[in-house]
């Protein structure tokens, strides 16, 4: 009977996996709710606020997609995922889209059968240490204990960085950002490493952020973006173009505040297409005319979302840097909507 139990367990996992596969758009519409995989708790990107509602840079993209597809930004169910559980949650159909600081890599795109539809944050891996450690460069970390989130690309970069600089370290592998931060704060490790944006967000949530410094070295490329399952191209298009609509809105100066006014007065054909006043872009991917207008109206364009959650006016205080629009020397570039 041992064999049967074994196969039973094996199949039980896959029965669950197979059910919610093709036609994500139809599933979401039928359900009347978008299920969005988000971070368990990374301030600024995706974390519950004092009332328990999820807020953040990534969360606003979830809301924009829900507004585009369902017409209501509140119809989102947030599923908190850790570095370890996120891809399983997406592959099994537990979430419709994963917007959780996930790095676009070759093997995730091909072998794991996912599609990274866009890059909503260009990032790189850095190190945070306590000021009184007296370290000013990551290359001085020889012999240090480093806290690291398991199941991430940062784990592999860390090993490569120390190896190429011919220095040693002791890894402490923990399951998610908040636990890693707790260990770092308690002094269980000398340094904490993750994406630089994550470091800034974590630092802001520490008791006295001024006692911690982020070292200047950025040791990797970390393009973070929303992820969908491979094979459902229409759903991927919806998430991708919702994001590009937010980006185009910033480029064209359409904001949450002026969207109605612009819509009634604009003569710019691209803005007209963006806001669904001309042509029928939405129908091409199974949505209505006003999809993008609703998406932008939720929390504004890309720049507004950035400034509201992680920009220089927030405690996290990240500059736009690589994430400025291409017109301002950054890498954020949306293909034309036509």
């Amino acid at each position: 009977m041992k064999k049967s139990v074994f196969f039973g367990a094996l199949a039980a996992t896959t029965v669950l996996a197979g059910s919610a596969f093709a036609g994500t758009l139809d599933d979401v519409k039928a359900r009347g709710e978008l299920i969005c995989g988000v971070n368990v708790g990374l301030t600024g990107f995706g974390a519950p606020d004092a009332t328990g509602a999820y807020v953040g840079f990534d969360v606003d993209l979830c809301k924009a997609v829900a507004a585009a597809v369902l017409g209501d930004a509140a119809k989102v169910k947030y599923v908190p995922t850790t570095g370890e559980t996120r891809f399983t949650a997406l592959a099994s159909g537990e979430v419709d889209v994963l917007i959780r600081n996930s790095t676009w890599t070759f093997s995730r795109d091909t072998d794991l059968k996912f599609d990274f539809v866009a890059v909503n944050y260009y990032d790189g891996q850095g190190f945070m240490v306590k000021k009184d450690l007296g370290v000013s460069s990551a290359k001085e970390l020889d012999g240090a204990t480093v806290c690291i989130q398991t199941g991430t690309t940062t784990e592999l970069n860390l090993a490569d960085f120390f190896k190429s600089n011919n220095i040693t370290y002791t890894p402490v592998n923990v399951a998610d950002d908040s636990e890693a931060l707790r260990q770092y704060d308690a002094g269980a490790c000398d340094a904490y490493t993750t994406d630089a944006s994550g470091l800034a967000a974590s630092r802001a949530s520490l008791a006295s952020p001024a006692d911690h410094i982020i070292l200047p070295e950025i040791i990797s490329k970390e393009p973070l973006g929303p992820v969908v399952r491979h094979g459902d191209n229409n759903w991927g298009d919806i998430v991708r173009w919702t994001y590009y609509a937010l980006l185009t809105a910033e480029e064209k100066g359409v904001t949450k505040a002026n969207i109605d006014q612009v819509a009634s007065s604009t003569t710019d054909p691209e803005i007209k297409r963006l806001l669904g006043l001309e042509g029928d872009m939405g129908a091409m991917m199974g949505l209505d005319k006003d999809w993008s207008r609703r998406a932008i109206a939720v929390s504004g364009n890309y720049g507004e979302i950035f400034e509201a959650h992680i920009g220089t006016s927030t405690p996290i205080g990240l500059a736009r840097g690589l994430n400025a629009l291409w017109t301002q020397g950054g890498l954020q570039y949306a293909p034309p909507i036509r």
Partner: peptide
Amino acid sequence: GITLNQTGRELECMT
């Protein structure tokens, strides 16, 4: 844990 996550081979690793 780590191997499963880095390779994405859930079924194989679990089995």
